[in-house]
Amino acid sequence: MQNGKIGARLKRIIRLHELPSCPASWHNGYKRQRGGYLFSYASGHSRKDVEGMITERDVEHIGMLADIAILREELGEFTASFNRILEYFDILDQVTGDETDEDVAVNVFREDEVVPSLPPDDVLSNAKETEDGFFRAPRVM
């Protein structure tokens, strides 16, 4: 904390954003990305070749895990952006401390009292596939 008259402080601050070495390390990832080297790895490298790199096969696997289909032609763009973004996230490796939140609210309840359910028409009105009051879904087996 520093106190002082506004003129001096203004000067100080202007100096801050004139100097690229100011403490804002949050743009580390941004700088690296601008260097363009993220694109310098040709596809075909496995993760073992370049440590931490996500391959197209990894992206396909993540798509499976997330239950999202990926079109062949989308794979390259997803792979490239995943790598840029995850590389930016690497900055979290520097974080110390734990995740416990001391001042969070606890014990929020409702009483065990019945509240009317939705009218049947409202329940099914948004579903396109219904049968005898049931929703219809693709087969699971």
Partner: peptide
């Protein structure tokens, strides 16, 4: 879930 369309190969499921 209620499976419709026979036990061996249900065509779709009903959900309650």
């Amino acid at each position: 879930l209620v499976h419709k369309g026979g036990t061996d190969r249900p065509r779709y499921s009903l959900v309650d």
